[in-house]
Amino acid sequence: MAAISALPTAGRFAGLAGLVVLAVGCWRGRHWAVSAGAAGLLAGVFVAGLDGAPVVAVVVGVGATVLAWDAGGTAIDLGAQLGREAPTARLEAVHAAGSLVVAAAAGGLGAAVYLVAGGGRPMAGLALLLVAGVALVVALDRA
């Protein structure tokens, strides 16, 4: 019981720490820090999900985390390639808009599937869908 009640606290801590590390990573221009911070944020969102947060909140949380990671990484690369003085607002806005559309579409799809299909699915189907998800993601990542 104690472990379960400690979970939300740990989640909050992971989320906050992730936020701080991500911000510092952006400031200092360190990719690893941005990634580590995003991982912390993601852990926070997952913990919230395990703790019973609604599906929309979890999907939005994951989407926002990916957007933050994407924007941070883009900013660091721009800093390395173009420096601090160069005007880059338009590029960053266009890039962020593209990512936002993807996050909204994918997240919307996921939430919709969850909300439309109720409970009571056979275990075999669920397991096969998970296998499909893992295999497809791994295939996509081999770009």
């Binding site: 997952f46 979890v58 999907v59 994951v62 989407g63 579409a105 994918a106 997240g107 996921g110 599937v113």
Partner: peptide, 11 residues
């Protein structure tokens, strides 16, 4: 809900 949030990553 957590499994489904993974859809964002797939996207």
């Amino acid at each position: 809900p957590v499994v489904l949030a993974g859809v964002v990553g797939v996207g």
